[in-house]
Design a protein around this nucleic acid. Structure first.
Length: 499
RNA sequence: GGGCCGUUAGCUCAGUCGGUAGAGCAACAGACUUUUAAUCUGUGGGUCGUUGGUUCGAUUCCAACACGGCUCACCA
């Protein structure tokens, strides 16, 4: 882009950069070292009122200029770093008339500035750095969005997240909270004796979930690889290997639609614990989420989108059938009848799949009618085997899996089950998936022969769970869209030159 | 992918029942040594998302397209 085409404000700022260079001043030096952060200055001296003591405190710090208030021979500015913001005062007579006129006039809102000076309080009592010397550390050649309203345009906020972070403090806070939630989960899991592991993101056979994968290609091996849709089968290989308690917090990739609750890459925690079953995991899940809510909100409940959600355990545990009857008004005597379920689905505006069996119909009815009504934390248990190809059969009912899903705020937050460790049963379940795949179900699983071989060496009885971290963060930060809790949510790439 | 809505100055937004546009902040010139959304005076800045159509004339009406938002479908 030539300078004649650039916008006036950018051209003005570029001219200042050129002027600095012509005067022998590097607009992008890297030899200035801040010695304190702004938070420390405020913490140490925020209550200090003795002017002589403050004047004796030398500080050297740096940050971005967020506001400038110029009074001719005196300029106030608001400086912000990662920790806090603080006012600085630059007086002509303190820095020297020439410096003030030739150099400080080049400082604009958005620039990164290093300052050294002492502290004082203004007439209104605000703690302020009296600048003795300053360095421009990085000239900004683009103007920041407006200081009152910040940046509102959601597309720009997501595409240029750096701008969103500079001007919208609540966005910075949200991502601090997200980081804290994930840290708390790690600490919790480690205290429970779980080992954090990393398993492949590129899978020769996509597995561990029913979803369409992304495909990529490895040139040297000349093989197609799939971005993982779930780490499940690898984590269970580690249980076979003897780790007994493992967890992984990482990305999954699913080649499906985007929505307020779906991003093609999203963060899951999966964990597997030997010698437990799905009932044990319900207790663990209650304990973990209550802990997170307490530590982030200071109480056992959160307000999400105007609704109060109470995490105090125990949470209701309903079978899929019961949920459909209690929350969906279905006829208790007929929820096992496929014809009834088809009618029920049609009555609620859904089109039942022609090939769907009882299990699929039951699940579809639940997802269509009940799911969005489960605002308070609720465990739904006893899923049909046909929709649970990796779950252990219930000993009392071989058509039902030892499985639960956790719903909060109308969203699925977690999915867990007692793991199927019978290699023969697992092989026949894979076969059923392969047949569904051949019948046209693009989301059905592949046959993973190495996974069967691993089970043939013996996997201890184990239960495993996946928790959707992004949705959990949404609940705890009152976010309405998953894009708000992802630093760089997926958008359609912009065509053409960058403006 | 379908439906609905949106796109005007760097930012936040008005507006034109069709006669090529305004405000605040930001910018530029100037005044000002205690402001904190500083204030005051003056000035400049727009292919009104893109491309077509209708029209004497389109930023405005119509269509297609692009991007975004909500929503439905699919999924977690």
């Amino acid at each position: 882009m030539s300078s004649s085409e650039e916008h006036q404000q950018i051209a003005n700022r570029r001219a200042k950069v050129t002027a600095l260079r012509d005067a022998g001043v590097n607009p992008y030096p890297n030899d200035f070292k801040p010695e304190t952060r702004l938070e420390w200055i405020r913490r140490e001296f925020g209550e200090e009122n003795d002017p002589d003591r403050l004047a004796g405190i030398p500080v050297q710090t740096a940050g971005r200029v967020m506001l400038l208030r110029n009074f001719g021979k005196l300029t106030f500015a608001t400086l912000r770093d990662a920790t806090d913001q603080l006012q600085i005062a630059v007086q002509r007579d303190a820095v020297g008339a020439e410096i003030y006129r030739d150099l400080f006039r080049k400082v604009e809102v958005g620039d990164i500035l290093g300052v050294a000076g002492t502290l004082f309080r203004t007439q209104t009592g605000e703690l302020t750095i009296r600048v003795h010397t300053f360095r421009i550390l990085a000239k900004a050649v683009r103007p920041l969005p407006e200081k009152w309203h910040g940046l509102e345009d959601v597309e720009t906020r997501y595409r240029q997240r750096y701008l969103d972070l500079i001007v919208n403090p609540e966005v910075r806070t949200l991502f601090h909270t997200r980081s804290r939630i994930i840290r708390l989960i790690r600490e919790f899991m480690e205290e429970k004796g779980f080992l954090e592991v990393e398993t492949p993101m590129m899978h020769p056979i996509p597995g561990g979930a029913t979803a369409r994968p992304f495909v990529t290609h490895h040139n040297a091996l000349d093989v197609d690889l799939f971005l993982r849709i779930a780490p499940e089968l690898y984590l269970k290989r580690l249980i076979v290997g003897g780790f007994e308690r493992v967890f992984e917090i990482n990305r999954n990739f699913r080649n499906e639609g985007l929505s307020v609750r779906h991003n093609p890459e999203f963060t899951m925690m999966e964990f597997y614990q030997a010698y437990t079953d799905y009932r044990d995991l319900m207790g663990l899940t209650e304990e973990l989420l209550l802990h997170l809510v307490f530590r982030t909100c200071g109480q056992p409940s959160v307000v999400h989108q105007g609704r109060t959600i109470d995490f105090t355990p125990p949470w209701p545990r309903l079978t899929l059938d019961q949920a459909l009857v209690t929350h969906g008004g279905a006829d208790a005597a007929r929820v096992g009848d496929p014809d009834y379920l088809r009618d029920y689905l049609r009555a609620h505006g859904a089109t039942p799949e022609a090939t769907a069996g009882v299990g699929e119909l039951l699940l579809a009815a639940f997802e269509t009618v009940v799911e969005e009504k489960l605002i308070q934390p609720t465990f739904i248990i006893d899923y049909p085997i046909s929709v649970s190809p990796l779950s252990r059969r219930s000993d009392s009912n071989p058509e039902v899996a030892e499985r639960f899903e956790l719903f909060i705020g109308g969203w699925e937050i977690a999915n867990a089950f007692s793991e199927l460790n019978d290699p023969e049963d697992q092989a026949s379940r894979f076969q059923a998936q392969v047949q569904a795949r051949q019948a046209g179900n693009a989301e059905a699983m592949h046959f993973d022969a190495d996974y069967i071989r691993a089970l043939e060496f013996g996997m201890p009885p184990t239960a495993g769970e996946g928790i959707g971290i992004d949705r959990l963060v949404m609940l705890l930060t009152n976010a309405a869209a998953i894009r708000e809790v992802l630093l760089f949510p997926q958008l359609r790439p912009q065509l053409g030159p960058v403006a």
